[in-house]
């Protein structure tokens, strides 16, 4: 029972970590809370499902399709919603925050309804990449779940290398610390923002495909994914990638434990309560900077 819980918690946490990293990176660098996040994930998953059904099933093609749609949706969000709102004149800071939240929420509805019109509003799932189960300490675990966890952590490792050890990655880090200083050093901030949105789309694309494989996604399920991502990011601290990685594991395990011990229908209640407590007593989250 305990090993079962530990293993499924680990698998869920890996996906959560991947799915929230893009979200938190985006906030860290450009200060945008993208409420269309869950729907971006769902879009990638649904397109991947569609491609998987079209061709003879090829994992590489499926992931590529998901990543492409993730990047396209990410860049569209930036070009159609975020940029225009940032350019509006005469908005106070609070106004801009609320406009951004409302704008991305409207974008969620638009995406969701478009998806439902094209593909139908039904839950779909991408077929498992590999079949078979392995026995880990007496718990039968699908190999493809292990593969999902490996892909997640591998991608996160790659991101860590990119941000820490390449020039373009370091400029992202700099943009999150002091954008004005970066501009004064001669960097093109607009370009950096486009890079961030591209990376965001890439991460969301892969995460969307993986979620579609493990849980299944549906057009209207996007908001629920956003809510989970939100609890994780708030718990870890807005904009802190390390924080959201740790929080992803905390929330992942708590949700799994609740689902096993209390009942699946209440799985999100404890994390919501933790979320409120964190917001109330430590609004910057466990590792937030503010």
């Amino acid at each position: 029972m305990l090993t079962q819980l530990l293993i499924s918690g680990f698998l869920i946490s890996a996906i959560y970590a991947l799915a929230t990293t893009g979200f938190t990176l985006l906030y860290g660098v450009s200060g945008i809370l993208n409420l269309a996040h869950g729907t971006t994930l769902a879009t990638a998953g649904i397109v991947a499902w569609y491609v998987a059904g079209l061709t003879s099933f090829d994992p590489v093609q499926v992931i590529l399709a998901g990543v492409t749609s993730g990047v396209v949706v990410g860049l569209l969000t930036y070009a159609l919603i975020v940029r225009p709102i940032q350019r509006l004149l005469g908005l106070s800071e609070t106004d801009e925050h609320v406009f951004m939240l409302v704008g991305t929420l409207l974008w969620t509805i638009i995406l969701q309804e478009a998806l439902a019109n094209i593909f139908g509003d039904v839950p779909v799932s991408v077929p498992q990449f590999v079949s078979g189960v392995v026995n880990i300490f007496g718990v039968r675990t699908p190999i493809s779940s292990l593969l999902v966890a490996a892909i997640s952590w591998g991608l996160l490792g790659a991101l860590w290398l990119y941000v820490g050890f390449t020039k373009s990655g370091r400029s992202l880090l700099a943009a999150s610390i002091n954008p004005r200083g970066l501009v004064l050093c001669g960097f093109n901030l607009a370009l950096i923002h486009r890079v961030v949105w591209t990376i965001y789309g890439l991460l969301a694309g892969v995460a969307g495909v993986l979620i579609a494989m493990v849980h299944g996604v549906s057009p209207s399920g996007g908001l629920e994914l956003t809510a989970t991502a939100f609890s994780i990011v708030i718990l870890g601290g807005l904009g802190s990638v390390t924080g959201s990685l740790i929080a992803a594991n905390v929330i992942g395990y708590i949700e799994t434990a609740t689902a096993y011990l209390v009942g699946p229908s209440l799985r999100s209640l404890p994390s919501l309560i933790i979320l409120v407590a964190v917001l109330y007593f430590r609004p910057q989250g466990l590792f937030g900077r503010r």
Partner: peptide, 25 residues
């Protein structure tokens, strides 16, 4: 009274989700 701007917005959003869960519970 404690939180500003977007943080407060989030608490209110979560308040709705919790009320929903309580009603289902």
């Amino acid at each position: 009274l404690r939180l500003r701007g977007p943080y407060f917005g989030l608490v209110t959003l979560v308040a709705v989700l919790i009320l929903r869960q309580l009603i289902i519970l």
